[in-house]
């Protein structure tokens, strides 16, 4: 079989010679097949994401129609009393995610810097695969780890914080931290402990992206800093971190997107409570995804619509965070060659 490629189109004398010529890409058949296949797959991904968004949006219509803006201002989730709202749930979601970010950001940053700039070569690859393995551990495992292994110790930290910085509303716990027999249960199942478990899942994601951009820091600039007598920390501070700023912020935002949606680990650790409160160390909170996971099993049709509406809101928030991260990374110098 022969393929004829029309390389020389007949001249079009009637057209104005000053109009730009239409150029054909002149692809080989194999290129065409790959181009077509890749386009289809790319479109399918976009279509799927769009379809999920549309599905959630349609499902939300009855709920939003019925409750209106109250859906966003009501704190309680009591379908039996016809009181449904996500105000407290959204606050809880953000609290858990922020705790996870505050814990995971410095750890991921230092871990990535250690891997790219400090670790001896033999440890390096070993460390990279271990961090990647952290990402492969199912989130339910982190939940069990958080509940059974972390929590008994974390409550001591929580009590310590509430003892010494409890005057600050975030660290306040509504009990007497100095009591001879302190109320341990007031410190369990909190946003703080859930956040710690989520941080374990956010670290490998943030670390992988930061490592990627740290590695791209130009060798010429690194050598310039070294040749001036710079220490490794000096090189990191002068060359690597300024270069990687965009990637660091973008990686953190992606990890935040992950933390916002985390379900299984949070569901195991927290005990549901529907109050808007800044007290992250105190028992009881609720996140959007844990709310859905905990309630959809015995939900009626209208309750399901309400849960899906909560999911829709979370979908939009995560979409916004991830889009912001992508834009940030692409606009930064380090991100020019990175696609996330």
């Amino acid at each position: 079989m022969t393929t004829t490629v029309d390389l020389a189109p007949p001249p079009a004398p009637s057209s104005d010679p000053r109009t730009p010529r239409r150029l054909s890409p002149g692809l080989q058949p194999s290129d065409r097949i790959f181009h077509g296949g890749a386009t289809v797959i790319g479109m399918v991904v976009l279509a799927l994401t769009g379809a999920i968004g549309l599905f959630l949006g349609f499902q939300s219509i009855p709920t939003l129609h019925y409750y209106g803006l109250h859906f966003f201002t009501e704190t309680q989730w009591l379908p039996e009393l016809n009181k449904i709202g996500i105000a407290a749930v959204l606050v809880g979601t953000v609290e858990v995610a922020l705790v996870a970010m505050v814990v995971s950001f410095p750890l991921a940053l230092m871990l990535a810097l250690f891997i790219t700039d400090y670790a001896p070569k033999r440890i390096k690859s070993w460390l990279i695969s271990t961090v990647d393995l952290m990402a492969a551990v199912p989130s339910i495992i982190y939940g069990l780890w958080g509940f059974y292994l972390l929590q008994p110790h974390a409550i001591n930290v929580a009590r310590f914080l509430s003892q010494y910085v409890g005057w600050f509303p975030v660290f306040h716990v509504d009990t007497d931290p100095n009591a001879a027999v302190w109320q341990q249960s007031r410190y369990t199942s909190s946003a703080f402990i859930a956040g710690l478990a989520v941080a374990m899942m956010a670290i490998p994601l943030a670390c992988a992206i930061m490592r990627g951009v740290f590695d791209q820091a130009p060798l010429g600039e690194r050598e310039a800093a070294m040749a001036l007598g710079g220490t490794r920390f000096g090189v990191a501070r002068t060359v690597v971190l300024p270069f990687a700023k965009g990637g660091v912020i973008g990686g953190t935002m992606l990890a935040l997107g992950r933390a916002l949606g985390e379900t299984a680990a949070v569901l195991i650790i927290i005990s549901p409570a529907y109050d808007i409160k800044p007290r992250i160390l105190e028992a009881g909170t609720q996140t959007t995804s844990a709310l859905i996971a905990g309630n959809f099993g015995n939900a009626t049709k209208s309750q399901l619509s309400a849960l899906l509406t909560a999911g829709f809101v979370l979908f939009l928030i995560t979409l916004a965070v991830n889009s912001f991260a992508a834009v940030f990374i692409r606009r930064s110098r380090s991100g020019a060659g990175t696609e996330i």
Binding site: P218, G220, E223, A224, A227, L228
Partner: peptide
């Protein structure tokens, strides 16, 4: 000190 082949100011 060292000056390299390719100019490498800190951008």
């Amino acid at each position: 000190g060292m000056v390299f082949q390719k100019p490498n100011p800190f951008p």
